[in-house]
Computed example of a mutant assay.
Amino acid sequence: MSGTGRQGSALAQPLQRPSGGRIAAGLVLFVLGAVVGAAGALVQSGWFPGGLLLALAGAAGLFLGGARAMDTRAGAVAPAVGWMVTVVLLTASRPEGDFLFGAGLGSYLFLLGGMAVAVMCATLGQGRQPGGSTVRLGK
């Protein structure tokens, strides 16, 4: 390759230190993931078939939107981690016997479907693309 001075795969490149803006964006996406997880936990059981689809679509939109906004897969992982932490904490029963998730099909579909959506969005998130005028993508 000529032109950019960077040769080889993106995996062979040295890691760059993240900037303060990327760290702040990751924290904001983490908090948004927690909010979407809590909202989805309430909505999915309230309106069973439609609420479940709405909760999973909201999570997928946040995960994929984070990946596109940060232009890296970490943009999908940060809200997915926030979502998973919140949902796992909400599944635990309290000492009083209260719980948010019932033992039904909808709850299991929300948990497993949300994890599958997180993995798909992190996998489909934009990776590094070579830059420069010498690169010929799409021809």
Rank of each mutant, 00 (worst) to 15 (best):
R6M: 10
L56M: 08
R136K: 09
A103C: 00
Q44N: 04
L62Y: 06
G75N: 04
S133V: 11
Q7R: 14
V35W: 06
L90K: 05
A76C: 06
M115K: 00
R17H: 12
A38W: 14
A118C: 12
M1G: 13
G5W: 06
A24H: 11
A39P: 00
F101T: 03
V88S: 14
T72E: 13
G61E: 10
A41D: 04
A60F: 05
A122V: 07
G21K: 12
R17I: 14
G106D: 12
L111P: 01
G40C: 06
S19F: 01
S2D: 14
A78E: 02
D71Q: 14
G113R: 09
A39Q: 10
G113M: 06
Q7A: 11
A12P: 03
A118D: 01
T91R: 15
V36I: 15
P79D: 02
V35G: 02
V28T: 15
L124Q: 11
V77Q: 01
I23R: 14
L62P: 01
L109Y: 07
A116D: 03
V117D: 01
Q7C: 01
I23K: 14
L112F: 15
G5Y: 07
C121G: 00
C121H: 01
L124A: 15
G66E: 01
G138Q: 11
V77T: 11
P14F: 04
A67E: 05
Q7T: 15
S45D: 08
A78N: 00
L89G: 13
A24T: 10
F48N: 04
A60Q: 05
T86D: 02
L11V: 10
L109P: 09
L124V: 09
P49Q: 03
Q44W: 04
M120Q: 05
F48I: 09
L111K: 01
G82F: 01
S107C: 05
A103M: 12
G125T: 04
A76Q: 01
L15I: 12
A39T: 12
V31S: 03
